[in-house]
Write a protein that binds this DNA or RNA. Structure first.
Length: 482
RNA sequence: CGGGGUGUGGCGCAGCCUGGUAGCGCGCCUGUUUUGGGUACAGGAGGUCGUGGGUUCGAGUCCCGCCGCCCCGACCA
């Protein structure tokens, strides 16, 4: 048995090692776990008619395109196509968390009631918390969030202010027993969430962590192809006095939002002059001022006087879906759970905390709400389950088969090969429904003369060209940021 | 949790009022046909009618209980 020891000095480092900004691999989907896929061999059950329970667009399309299946109210199984999207979103969220200096860990889904009794939330949280007992009749719960557990982990091991700040996150399934689950994965009971927690010595430090996360969020949403607006929010049951929620725009959103066009004009991913760095206090300050100086409000908090002060051509209005929420709440938990570090003056202090959530599974639905048409989903390049679909209009035809094999070979895991023996219309419809950014249409008509058709899902634009040129167009068309 | 709706082959639905051999469309399987936007024809497989009880000679249908799911509202990543 090999014994592993953690190097001592790791915990002594005052600040985490600098992480390079947003790694962007040459090939996007390089987790190495996703195999190429032929439709005849895959498990991608598309359906023609809309299941009766699905009312909103994203829910309907997720069921029809074979992304998910519901197993109970508000609980979903993720099928291969849906899982790819979920993983792609998760990957971008992770890259931006890492880039901000946060460290990933993984906490369990099941938590002991004891921790929640310490913070006082075991009783406060109410019926939304799923409570269970193990065989020894110990009270347990399926975690709806992780403030208590992270605070417990922190207090066990962090002793000195020299080890601060700590910015920790995980991406884990949560359960909140919603009274009324709805809108498919947008308001499920079980959902995948990225939750981060910051620990700082004082208020000033906590504010820096808060701003870092805010920047990470804006970058994340931009990479997902979404227009996100940060809005001041109430802190709710998490408590605290500084909080923002992030609303993305979609025609079917739950609430009306009003905001200044400034939010759309900022490039959060820009480098160099005008860009924002996570490790520069000045940049973070400037960034935070940008985020808070422009008008933004939901209908509940809408202030018509302030709204009238915004130049008319800069007023933007639309429907919004909440996809993230960040909180600063000081020593609420460190005090209740007695987590302390030794300060510079030798006295014990309760670190200041913040928590930061992104609804990863909700984002799958939210992106679809923001990007679809009558025919189906229109995936942004950055999270599409496949970059392209290869439609073999006549399997068995030598020229078609050869052309498809070549394309499939070149694209590998980035392509979904529709090799079904079905009518052309079936394949066109399914490809539109599944929403691949590109469609490579190979039919006997063009194959004879060495041509295929390339269709752009978003615009509907089609061109006839050689397979080589099509492949070039596809890779050239990748916007690595969005 | 209040209000409303609904549950019948994989999906969408009819049948229930007025009890009497469980049907239609799509999908699926076989064959023919068609071949660039869900083709056509023929044959076939597949259903404890959500569930428990009751009424009746007989219940998908009538009565009572329970459960699931959906929508509106209050509540929320």
């Amino acid at each position: 048995m090999v014994r592993t020891r953690f190097p001592r000095d790791v915990t002594k480092r005052a600040t985490p090692p600098r992480v390079r900004a947003a790694p962007r691999p040459a090939r996007r989907r390089t987790h190495g776990i996703e195999p190429p896929m032929r439709l005849t061999q895959g498990f991608i059950p598309t359906i023609k008619e809309t299941p009766n329970e699905a009312q909103i667009a994203s829910h309907r399309l997720m069921l029809r395109a074979g992304l998910v299946r519901q197993t109970s109210a508000g609980i979903y199984a993720w099928l291969p196509l849906g899982l790819r999207v979920l993983r792609n979103i998760e990957r971008i969220v992770r890259e931006e968390q890492d880039a901000s200096g946060a460290q990933e860990l993984l906490m369990p889904t099941i938590q002991p009631a004891e921790l929640w009794r310490e913070s006082g939330r075991y009783d406060d949280y109410g019926a939304e918390m799923l409570r269970i007992q193990d065989r020894h009749e110990r009270d347990m719960l399926y975690g709806p969030t992780n403030e208590e557990m992270i605070t417990d982990l922190f207090r066990q091991s962090v002793r000195s202010y020299r080890e601060l700040p700590k910015l920790l996150y995980h991406i884990q399934w949560k359960f909140r027993d919603e009274v009324r689950p709805r809108f498919g994965v947008m308001r499920g009971r079980e959902f995948l969430m990225k939750d981060a927690y910051s620990f700082d010595l004082d208020h000033a430090g906590a504010v820096v962590s808060y701003r870092k996360m805010m920047l990470a969020y804006m970058r994340t949403f931009q990479r997902l192809g979404l227009k996100a607006i940060p809005m001041e929010a109430d802190t709710g049951p998490i408590g605290g006095d500084l909080s923002h929620e992030f609303i993305i725009l979609a025609p079917t959103g739950e609430s009306q939002v009003f905001y200044d066009a400034a939010f759309e004009e900022i490039d959060y991913l820009a480098r160099g002059a005008g860009g924002f760095r996570h490790d520069s206090a000045a940049d973070l300050e400037r960034f935070f001022r940008e985020m808070t100086s422009h008008y933004a409000a939901t209908d509940e908090k809408h202030d018509t006087v302030k709204w009238d002060a915004v130049a008319p051509e800069r007023r933007r209005e639309g429907r919004g879906i909440e996809v993230g929420h960040i909180f600063y709440f000081g020593d609420k938990y460190t005090k209740a759970m007695n987590a302390t570090v030794t300060g510079p003056d030798g006295k014990q202090v309760h670190p200041e905390m913040g928590s930061y959530g992104i609804g990863v599974s909700r984002l799958v639905g939210a992106v679809i709400e923001a990007s679809h048409d009558d025919a189906g989903i229109i995936w942004p390049e950055s999270i599409a389950p496949f970059r392209a679909a290869i439609l073999n209009l006549k399997p068995g035809d030598a020229a078609c088969d050869a052309a498809c094999a070549k394309l499939y070979d070149a694209l590998g895991a980035d392509a979904l090969y529709d090799d079904r023996e079905d009518r052309a219309g079936v394949k066109f419809n399914d490809a539109d429904l599944m929403g691949h950014p590109w469609q490579l249409v190979v039919g006997p008509r063009g194959a004879a003369s060495g041509k295929i058709e390339l269709k752009r899902r978003a615009s509907g634009e089609r061109v006839e060209l050689t397979p080589e040129d099509a492949l070039t167009r596809i890779s050239a068309g990748v916007d690595r940021r969005a």
